[in-house]
Simulated assay, not measured.
Amino acid sequence: MRVLIATITAGAGHLQAAAALDEAWRAMRPKDVVEKVDLQKFFSPLHKTVHSAGYVKLVEHAPDLWAMLFKKTDNPKLVRRLTKFRRAIPPASTLRTIKYIKKFKPDVVFCTHYLPVEVMWRAKEKWEGKPPLVATVVTDFEAHALWMGPSSDFYCVAAEETKARLVARGAVSENVIVTGIPIAGKFSSQINGAEVRKRYGLRDDLPILLVLGGGFGMGPVAEILAELDKVPQQFQTLVVAGRNEELRRELAVQDRKHPTHVLGFVTNMHELMSVSDLVISKPGGLTSSEALAMGKPIFILNPIPGQEAANSDFLLERGAAAKVNRVEDLPYRMGQLLGSKKMVEMAQCAKALGKPSAAMDICRVTLERLEAGSGKRVSAD
């Protein structure tokens, strides 16, 4: 069997979801041909720069403009009109992508970003033979209208609320499956917390706050640490600055009231979360899903309008998170939360929401759909 996992660089989450599916499918069916592709490889250099760097700059420097664009485009009728226009006059990158897909001849296509959903609509036209099964894997807790497209055979979504949104907008209920957002298998692994704490010089008698700057090291990480220094309770902090090396160096030389360990880009987030008592982060779909899978409550600070604001609402409503809108409110709220019954309850709610096996579940559902469509038994081993 030939499997294509199509994604786009727009923040780290879509890539992480694609990697989780790649890992899960290879574990279930190691003999299959699996390709994970970032469709930006088919963009022109200018298009690639505008798309990837443009998104980061927009959400960082003009969040209100991003919020307006997000809201205006969250309209199924408008999306259908825009897609039909792009379909009539496809950009060169789309044509290059379609050529690649038809040459690869996949049996299954996973889309972990909405752009491949649109591309597959055109790719399925005049397909020689039976077209591939297209699974759209929504990577946030709320599904924007851009995720919906006629090329999708079914959707895999984070929660019942996500499913309800798609069904209300016309999706067939049985074609929307609640699986959770796919995360790496290591978030289900057994971790020796004592060994992790020893490796980083973390004390056993103090709670640990994990401050995340995201894959690109965006957000007011320095301001967060400055405000945490005003909290009277004793704790220690792990900080992940991501790929922002300038930020890592800046934070590493600063003195702190509370013990602070500053890291750059890491590949062992599962270990860091395992020893942490609270995750302070923007509520991206993947980061939130990782924290929930490990039963870790989330403290949200000033989420990006749009998808992060929607994720924030979901987590707050389900009791797995707390939130402040201004960094100066952090000391008071953190002082209330640390060591409280509320924090224990948040951890319990997070654990109840977690879906650590989401990637495997998505692959199993897909195999079942393939079997139903072909009338043949499709082995999961």
Rank of each mutant, 00 (worst) to 15 (best):
A12E: 05
A12T: 05
A12F: 03
A12K: 00
G13P: 01
G13D: 03
G13K: 02
G13N: 04
G13L: 01
G13F: 00
H14F: 01
H14A: 02
L15T: 03
L15V: 06
Q16W: 01
Q16V: 00
A17F: 08
A17W: 02
A19P: 02
A19E: 07
A19C: 06
A19S: 11
A19T: 02
A20E: 10
A20P: 04
L21W: 04
L21F: 07
L21P: 02
L21I: 00
D22F: 00
D22K: 00
D22M: 03
E23V: 00
E23M: 00
A24Q: 04
W25S: 00
R26C: 08
R26S: 10
R26K: 15
A27S: 12
A27G: 09
M28D: 07
M28H: 10
R29T: 01
R29M: 04
R29V: 12
K31I: 02
K31D: 15
D32P: 07
V33M: 05
V33G: 13
V33R: 07
V33S: 09
V33I: 11
V33T: 12
V34K: 03
V34A: 08
E35Q: 12
E35F: 07
E35R: 14
V37T: 10
D38S: 09
D38L: 05
D38F: 06
D38H: 05
Q40A: 10
Q40N: 06
Q40G: 08
K41F: 09
F42K: 05
F43A: 03
F43S: 03
S44D: 13
S44E: 13
L46Y: 12
L46Q: 12
H47E: 13
K48S: 10
K48R: 15
K48F: 04
T49P: 04
T49M: 13
T49V: 11
V50H: 10
V50P: 11
H51S: 12
S52E: 15
S52G: 12
A53F: 11
A53T: 11
G54E: 14
Y55A: 09
V56N: 09
V56F: 09
V56R: 13
V56G: 11
K57L: 15
K57C: 14
L58S: 14
L58M: 15
L58V: 10
L58K: 13
E60I: 06
E60V: 07
H61W: 09
H61I: 06
H61R: 15
P63F: 02
D64N: 09
D64G: 13
W66Q: 04
